[in-house]
Design a protein around this nucleic acid. Structure first.
Length: 203
DNA sequence: CCACGGATTGGCT
DNA sequence: GCCAATCCGTGGA
């Protein structure tokens, strides 16, 4: 895949309604261009969070130091640390003040697989299992890409992390279902993933 | 000031 | 299938 021919998504893309953006993020290319290293992966699984009606969202109880970037206008990167061990990254959506974002739960590596393997395992890939375990989960994606607290609040229009456009995934290839790993607002069908893609964290 | 628990992962049973 | 690891944001005292 020739990434240099793809167009970067602009602010307008992100500032639309949460669920529209979440659905359309499937298939887009997440890129981290940091110095010499270029890492990229196709987004295959996401979850939407909306503090105004969703108890599982970090913004549900209002603005705090940790979640303030989620209240910015769409097009920023929200990175948080959880379970004492993992980082997870989100795409802020909607208009300023909304407190909405989309969690990246799985990507299919496109560029920089060797670097990702070293970030995850400290060595080269040796089998299929390691290949699919590389980026099939939110914490795994951040570890493979080297995304840490340092990327909190990154501007996706002019920062080191951005998204490249790709054709919309056809409806029949998209599965919409409930979110994973939460205890509140579990009835919301706000998880989207690409059907049969091996980098989806779970069915 | 301090206790609680999480948008997870990986290893062990 | 179950559970420990391990940090720090959050909220109550």
């Amino acid at each position: 895949m020739n990434l240099s021919k793809l167009k970067k998504l602009n602010r307008t893309f992100y500032q639309r309604e949460l669920l529209v953006v979440a659905r359309e993020l499937l298939g887009k290319i997440l890129v981290k261009a940091d110095g010499s290293a270029l890492l990229a992966g196709k987004i295959v699984e996401v979850e939407a969070y909306d503090g105004s009606i969703d108890e599982a969202a970090h913004t549900y109880t209002g603005k705090t130091i940790r979640n303030q970037i989620m209240f910015e206008a769409g097009g920023y990167f929200y990175v948080y640390f959880t379970y004492g061990a993992h980082f997870c990254c989100n795409i802020v959506t909607g208009e300023e003040g909304h407190g909405t974002a989309v969690l990246i739960r799985g990507v299919e590596p496109v560029e920089g697989v060797v670097k990702m393997a070293f970030n995850r395992y400290g060595k080269n890939l040796v089998n299929e299992k390691e290949k699919y375990n590389l980026t099939s989960g939110p914490g795994k994606v951040c570890q493979a890409f080297g995304i840490t607290r340092d990327y909190y609040g990154e501007d996706l229009i002019k920062g080191r992390v951005y998204l490249l456009n790709q054709p919309k995934i056809p409806e029949q290839m998209v599965v919409q279902t409930t979110r994973i790993g939460i205890k509140k607002s579990i009835e919301l069908n706000w998880r989207f993933y690409i059907k049969d893609n091996p980098f989806v964290s779970r069915k």
